[in-house]
Structure formats: C-alpha cells, structure tokens
C-alpha cells in the first residue's frame, strides 16, 4: 500500500507514463488494476446493460456531444471518440442535410473484444466495452475488427502540439508547454484528472496503444451520466439500462421503431436511433402515376 500512497502524492504532471514504465514499475505506482487473474465473462444475465437512445428529432447536429467529449476525456487533436456524421442529399432546391451523432456502440457481441489477444478490450461494468491501457500492446486487431471505425491509435507521443515550447511573440505571448506548466495541467492545460484518478493510464494515454469511448465509465460507475449526454443541449441522448423495463429508454424503444448501425453484422450495438432528423409534415396527397 505504501507504494500507492506514494503515487497519490506525486504530481501527475511529473510522471512520465509510458507503457514500459508501467510494466517496470513493480511496487511504485503500479495500477491497481494491473494483472487481474482472469477476464470477466460477459455478464448478460446479471447487472446492468447500459445503452443509449439518440432522438434524432431533438438532435440539431450542433456537435456539443463531440466537442465536450474531447474536453472530458482529454482526447487529442485528430481523434474523435464521438462524432457527427453528415450527409447532403438531393438537388437544389430539394435539398436535405442530415446529422447523425455516432459513438462506440458498446456492442453486446463486440468484435473488438473477441479479437483482442491480451483481453485489454473487455466487457466491464454495465456491459460497457472497456479498454485497459496497461494491457494493450497496440496490435490494432480491435481497429481491424470494429465495423464502426470508433477506435483510434496513438502512433506518436500524445498531444504533440501541446508539448512545444515556441512562442508566437517571444517574451510576450505564451507557448503550449509554458501555458500547461503555469496552470499545472498534465500536458494539456485543461487536462481533466478524473479519468486518470479512475484508471491509471487512461487520462492521456501513451504512445503505442489504442483508445475509444468508454461511456465515461469513470462517471457512470459513480452514478453520473456520461459527459456527452449531459452536454447535449437538445436532450437528444438518453442513457438507460436495457435490463430495467421501467427505464426511460426501455419505454422509448417500445414506442418508436429504433434503428441501429450495421444491424446485419450481428454486433448487437447498444446505441439506438429513433425518430427523424427532419420531422416536418408533408402535405396529404395520393400522389400521381
């Protein structure tokens, strides 16, 4: 325990978390979660099955979900854990534009979990598809197996833009490194420590491993909603437990005809879409031949 207390006192920003360090660490600062004896089997029968319903009539394509996720999870430039896919259809003036918010589907039949050789990708609390950074060897099998393109890999040191030392106007404006150090962030100034406090190595990630949405497991396990759900100003994202017939999403899934992405692949995604992005009424008519 002494080793863990020591870790508590160490400034997060002082620690250089590299995969090598983590494995070598021995007693000092080793993640609590390193080296579980066995991987948990999927718990379908007991516990929660957390899922999300996205109400497209409420969604306005504003991107609050996608952007706020980056702020909550310290996601680096170029990676998106949550996205808004857009399509333009039709020809002027009969044009349509649709926004579709996407994220990891936390599939019940997750191909990424099946493919992971070290069980770094595994099913966890509430049937969330979780990732243990310290077990990841960066083989990218998960990326290849995932049909939704929601997993990214860090080829280089994370947040390279924030590690730079150069100022725009020397002596007068700041630099990324200086700004971070001054406000005592960890690599990025607005670094959110809640992730790292929950699971070591998941605050910023490090070179050579993958990352993806974990349904804000650091919040959800405390009874808090994921950040994207809270941040959506349109109330378009609704969380719930599929195993609870009284939950709001269970009711929504009965009331509307939910769709899921790439249903035919049998991944059993747990992100459901209901209603239409543009629900405007059409005139009553029988049409023509």
């Amino acid at each position: 325990m002494e080793s863990l207390e020591h870790k508590n006192k160490t400034q997060l920003s002082e620690k250089k978390i590299s995969r090598r360090n983590l494995l070598k660490a021995g007693g000092a600062g080793v993640a609590v979660l390193a080296g579980a004896t066995t991987v948990s089997a999927k718990n379908k029968s007991k516990g929660k099955r957390l899922a999300m319903v996205i109400d497209l009539q409420h969604c306005t394509g504003c991107g609050g979900c996608a952007i706020s996720c980056k702020s909550e999870n310290n996601v680096q430039r170029g990676n998106r854990w949550a996205k808004v896919e857009t399509t333009t259809v039709g020809k002027f003036p009969n044009v349509g534009f649709k926004s579709l918010p996407t994220l990891c589907n936390h599939c019940e039949n997750a191909p990424c979990v099946k493919g992971c050789p070290t069980k770094a990708m595994h099913k966890g609390y509430g049937d969330i598809t979780m990732h243990s950074p310290e077990k990841c060897i960066g083989c990218r099998t998960c990326i290849a197996m995932c049909p939704y393109g929601v997993i990214s890999i860090h080829i280089q040191e994370t947040h390279p833009h924030w590690r730079s030392d150069d100022a725009l106007i020397k002596g007068c404006t700041s630099s990324p490194k200086e700004m971070t150090e001054k406000v005592k962030g960890n690599v990025i100034p607005n670094y959110n420590p809640a992730r790292e406090e929950f699971r070591e190595g998941s605050g910023l990630h490090y070179k050579g491993i993958v990352e993806k949405c974990t349904l804000c497991d650091h919040r959800v396990t405390k009874g808090l909603l994921p950040h994207c759900v809270i941040s959506c100003p349109c109330n378009a994202r609704i969380m719930g437990d599929l195993n609870d017939p009284d939950s709001h999403i269970s009711k929504l899934l009965v009331k509307y005809s939910p769709r899921r992405l790439k249903e035919h692949l049998g991944t059993e995604p747990k992100v459901f879409y209901v209603r239409e992005f543009n629900p405007s009424a059409t005139k009553s008519t029988k049409g023509t031949v």
């Binding site: 609590v32 579980a36 004896t37 991987v39 948990s40 929660k48 966890g124 609390y125």
Partner: peptide
Amino acid sequence: VYLEDGQLMGESTI
C-alpha cells in the same frame, strides 16, 4: 475478483 469471475471494479465493488 472472486465474486464476479475475475472482474475488477465490478458491481460488487460499487
């Protein structure tokens, strides 16, 4: 680990 098939931070932990 013992109550939930080797899982850490499982529901029993909560």
